[in-house]
């Protein structure tokens, strides 16, 4: 089974976050890639089988409403702490940018059927394409 790319996981996690009514612990969610990378780099020797359950446990420790994006961000195989840091920063920036753009779309009078989640998904799709170079860093 091919693991999801870090860049893809960030946008799926952002999509999950943006349809939540009450977002919380975004900072904690952003920490999950760092925890996953640190666990992957830990000198566990023969006990590497512990990594997946431990990361999943840490990812789901926050309140339930943050469990979904946290689990998504725990999914990719982070090659280094730098990659994890970049993912965390990209996640926060993406959610912030998508929020701002979504507000502008609402203010400019989007058609009722496109307001809310559809507009957010489209904004994220545009950001996915626009920020692609960041994914290659």
């Amino acid at each position: 089974m091919m693991p999801i790319a870090v860049y893809d996981a960030v946008f799926v996690a952002a999509a999950v976050t943006l349809v939540s009514d009450r977002r919380g612990r975004l900072g904690w969610v952003a920490l999950v890639p760092l925890i996953a990378a640190a666990a992957a780099l830990a000198p566990l020797g023969d006990h590497r089988y512990l990594i997946a359950p431990l990361v999943a446990l840490v990812a789901t420790l926050p309140p339930v409403r943050a469990a979904a994006p946290a689990l998504v961000l725990a999914a990719p195989a982070y090659g280094s702490l730098r990659a994890a840091l970049l993912a965390a920063a990209l996640f926060l920036v993406t959610v912030w940018l998508a929020d701002g753009l979504d507000r502008r779309v609402e203010q400019r009078g989007a058609a009722p059927s496109w307001r809310g989640a559809p507009a957010r998904f489209l904004v994220l799709a545009v950001l996915y394409a626009a920020l692609l170079p960041v994914g290659h860093l």
Partner: peptide, 11 residues
């Protein structure tokens, strides 16, 4: 083993 297994749980 392999975190995509957590996808249904995330969903």
């Amino acid at each position: 083993p392999g975190t995509p297994a957590a996808a249904p749980a995330a969903a």
